[in-house]
Design a protein around this nucleic acid. Sequence first.
DNA 1: GAGAAAATTTACACTGAGACAACATTTTAT
DNA 2: ATAAAATGTTGTCTCAGTGTAAATTTTCTC
Lengths: 211, 211
Amino acid sequence: MGLGLRETKKLQTQREIWEAAIRMFVERDFDDVSVAEIAAAVQVSRKTVFNYFATKEDIVLSPMEAHVDDAARVVRERAPGETAVAALRRDYLDRLAQRDASVGLNDAPHVLAVMRLIQTTPALQVRAFAFHQRAQELLERELAAQSGRDDVTARVAAAQIIYTRAALVAENLRRLFAGEPADAVHPDASADAERAFDLLEKGLGDYCGGP
Amino acid sequence: MGLGLRETKKLQTQREIWEAAIRMFVERDFDDVSVAEIAAAVQVSRKTVFNYFATKEDIVLSPMEAHVDDAARVVRERAPGETAVAALRRDYLDRLAQRDASVGLNDAPHVLAVMRLIQTTPALQVRAFAFHQRAQELLERELAAQSGRDDVTARVAAAQIIYTRAALVAENLRRLFAGEPADAVHPDASADAERAFDLLEKGLGDYCGGP
DNA sequence: GAGAAAATTTACACTGAGACAACATTTTAT
DNA sequence: ATAAAATGTTGTCTCAGTGTAAATTTTCTC
C-alpha cells in the first residue's frame, strides 16, 4: 500500500526541518535561533514549520513523544508471573546494556548534544517534564487496571516508578556530560539501577538511618 | 527598623497587581487576559508588571516559591532519632489536619479557584512541575548531607518522596474539584497518605501482585 | 494524459510576550 | 533643600504563534 508521493514528501520535509533546526540549535543556542531562520535554511515558509511542529520546543522534543508509554507498555506486555517492578527493572537494565538514548547512556556526539541542549534550555527542560507527567498517568492507568486496587495507590506507585527512573537517567547524563564514556559509566549505572529498584521494592525503610 | 515608604509602596503595588491579575485570570482565563489589561486595571505601565514578575506565569506561581524547600527543611529540622520519611509523614499529616493549601486540602473558594487555574492551564501546570524539580534537588542535597550515602541513592530517594507527595496532593485536589468539601476528604486523604508513606518505607514489593 | 478535486504551501496581517533604552518621577540621604 | 539613587514610564523592537485567503501541488477521475 506504500505511502503516496505526498506522504513521502511530508515525512521528508519534516525531517529536513528537524535536522536543520537541531543543527542550528546545537551550533548556536535554542533561544538564538528563530523559527524564521530555520524556515529559511530549509527553503520553506515560516508557517510550514508551524504546520509540522506545534511549537518551537516540539521540534526538539517531538521524538520523545514515541516513548511516553514505554513504561506502561512494559507493564502491560510482561510475562505472566513477573511483577510490574521486576519487568520495569529488566527493561531498564536491557536498555542500559544497549546504550539506549532513552536511559541516558548513549554517548554518540549528536545524541549527547541534543541531551545537553534540553538540559541547558529552561523552556525545553520544563517541557520534558510534561512527558514524565504523561508517562505517569499512562502507567497509573495500567497499574490500576491490572491490580484491582484503588486509584490512589496506583497513582503513588506510578509516580515512584517514573521518577525513580528519571533520577537514574539524570545521573547517567550527568556523568556523560562530565566526559565519561558510556561504556565506563555502564557498570555503575547498572549497580545504581539495581539499588534504586531495590529501594522501590523494599522501600526507604533501611535508608536514612532508621530501623 | 520598619520598611521605608518605598518598600511599603513596592509591596503594595506588587500585591495590587497580583490581586487584579488573579481575579481576572479566574473570571476569564489565563490566556484570555493580556499583561496590558492587567497593567491597565492597576493603573500601571505594562513594563512595571514585568518589573515585579519576571513572566506572566510568575504572577500566579510566585507564591509557591516560598514552599520549594519545605521538604528539605522538614528533614533538616527533624528531631534526632526520627527518620527522614517519618518526619515527612508527620509534616504532611499535620498539614492535612490544618487543611493547608500546600497539600491540596483547602477548599476556600479563592484558593480552589487558583488551584483550578493552575491545573487547567498547560503553561502553569508545566511551570508548577519545575517547582517539584527544585524541591527534589534541595531534598536530595539534604539527604546526601545527612546520610553518608552516595548521591545517586539520595537522588532516587528524593525523587520518590517528592513525587509521592505530589501524587497525594493531586488526588486531594481532584476530589475538591469534584465538589467534595475538605472536611469530607480529610479522612481518606489521611488514609491515603499513610498507605503512600508505607509504600515509601516498605516498598512496592507487596503491591502489583508480588511473590 | 488532461482536467477536476483535495490538500498543502505560502503570503500577509495580527496579537501578545518579553527585552531594551532614554527619559521622567519619586524617594532617600546629605 | 537638594543631590543621588532607585523606580516608573513611554515607546520601540523582536519573535512566537494564529488566522485567512490565494497560489501551488498532488491525487483522482474520466
